[in-house]
Amino acid sequence: MSDHDNEHRPVRRVLWARLLLLLPFIAMLWVSSYNSVEPMVAGIPFFYWYQLLWVLIGAALIAFVYAVER
């Protein structure tokens, strides 16, 4: 199979993996779970580092789903 065909092959949708992509929504919309100063990390209040951490978790989840569906 040529590279071009590979790029255009329809995606194999894997439902259980896709459900993982709900997690960023749950985490981010549940504001009361992270509106606090403690625990601090390296002087950064929880509110800030936790949300930045979710940027990374969100990216990792998407990369994981991509790998499963390849």
Partner: peptide, 20 residues
């Protein structure tokens, strides 16, 4: 202050949309 940080959860949520 803190309310301005909503740009971060906002950009966390756009990429699942983009993927799906």
């Amino acid at each position: 202050g803190a309310i301005g940080f909503f740009a971060v959860p906002y950009t966390v949520m756009i990429y699942p949309f983009l993927y799906l």
